[in-house]
Computed example of a mutant assay.
Amino acid sequence: MNSPALSLRHNHFLNGGSALASGIRLPRSISSSSTSSSPFRVRMSLQENGPSVAVVGVTGAVGQEFLSVLSDRNFPYRSIKLLASKRSAGKSMKFEERDYTVEELTEDSFDGIDIALFSAGGSISKKFGPLAAQKGTIVVDNSSAFRMDENVPLVIPEVNPEAMAHVKLGSGKGALIANPNCSTIICLMAVTPLHRRAKVKRMVVSTYQAASGAGAAAMEELVQQTREVLEGKEPTCNIFNQQYAFNLFSHNAPIQPNGYNEEEMKLVKETRKIWSDKDVKVTATCIRVPVMRAHAESVNLQFENPLDENTARDILKNAPGIVVVDDRASNRFPTPLEVSNKDDVAVGRVRRDVSQDGDYGLDIFVCGDQIRKGAALNAVQIAEMLL
């Protein structure tokens, strides 16, 4: 995701103020040094005893969100280095009222760097991640490059922090830590508290994934297509090979020989690794929907032990990083729009699965911001665990 993100500082409305477009919010933008205002709140963040940090892929949607989360969470650092491709090198950016120059990512970029946050694609991670780790840097990687490597922890801090207990900042030893796929993070944030109580035997997931998952260019194209369709024009299809506006289609990840696409198999394989349970049964169907930001997921659960819906709701209300939106009387439940730019994952539609006998099955509906908790926030939380 190296394409520049759109501004988040104002809601984006289509020409003519169409109600269809009201409330659309796009990824937070880094201000250039020539801009008078900054999207990052001002604070004294430079701390001599803090780690040195590098952000790889800083010009992409997730890279920019890395900076936003670092600022929002008051992450301490003694220095920060902004890294991107040669194409973006030399750009001037303002972060927390300080001017920085984007540097080209090279083999020498990680000298003296304690923590590196990567979001520049799998090929870049495979090339530079191990190199950085060899230099003593702890790499938190947002790509799929290392997720299924048995020697690399795959971590959601609220779910399996113990997986990275052996990684220590200041030990002089570098390491790779993988950020799970966004759909996996959002799903397991909601399901794991229930799994701990009743043990999930089988999980069926249907995802409704926003344009944000395909990067800023896909979000821009969705806005453009919406205008074009409303004006009766042929939609521009550069990012996806079919119309996205007012449509939905199977996730664009490559189809595997078993008929599942890569996104669906990530949910299967990553869940088993994160839960350390190779026997849990997981199946998924992943769909792209014309939503700007934040993914939604319908999750059906079958348990080994009984768990009634009221107990499940109470468990979720007390789970970290979860907000329950489950108002049956008002028919009010989680929506992608309401979780956009929010840290918490919202859960609702908590109900007994009537196709199963007793209290051995539940259905839930989950929404989470793919760029925030599904990517940048989770990575920064991993970095916080190292402090």
Rank of each mutant, 00 (worst) to 15 (best):
P254K: 07
L14W: 07
A375L: 03
R351K: 08
Y244S: 06
E228H: 03
K127R: 08
N261K: 11
T236I: 04
E65H: 13
K168T: 04
P4N: 09
V268A: 15
R328Q: 06
K281E: 12
S18E: 08
E338F: 03
K317A: 07
S22F: 10
A133K: 02
T271W: 01
R332Q: 12
L248Q: 09
K126W: 03
G60C: 03
V140H: 00
Y260N: 14
V55H: 00
L26C: 15
V140Y: 00
G215Q: 04
R98E: 14
P130H: 02
I124C: 05
L83G: 04
N241K: 13
V268C: 13
R197C: 08
N258F: 15
N74K: 11
A319M: 14
F240W: 11
G358P: 05
N310W: 06
V55N: 01
A61E: 01
I115Q: 02
E263G: 07
N160R: 07
R332L: 11
R328E: 11
M203H: 10
Q224A: 03
D326N: 15
P27I: 14
Q370R: 05
M265D: 11
L387R: 05
R147S: 10
F13E: 13
A116C: 05
K233V: 02
A294K: 01
I371P: 00
G136Q: 07
H295I: 08
V345Y: 06
K127D: 02
A145P: 05
N241Y: 12
H166V: 03
G23C: 06
R272T: 04
N252G: 12
H12G: 15
A284C: 15
H10V: 09
I255N: 09
E231Y: 04
L6T: 12
H195T: 00
I115P: 02
F249S: 09
G136W: 01
L386D: 02
R288I: 11
E234M: 04
N341I: 09
I371S: 07
L154R: 09
A214N: 09
R25I: 09
A383G: 08
A383K: 04
A296C: 04
E150N: 08
Q209D: 08
F128Q: 00
K81Q: 15
P290D: 12
S36L: 13
H10P: 11
N151E: 13
S340L: 00
S3W: 08
L8F: 15
A379I: 00
Q302M: 13
G361V: 10
L176Y: 01
A132V: 05
K94G: 14
V152H: 06
K168Q: 09
A84S: 14
L176C: 06
I177M: 04
Q134V: 05
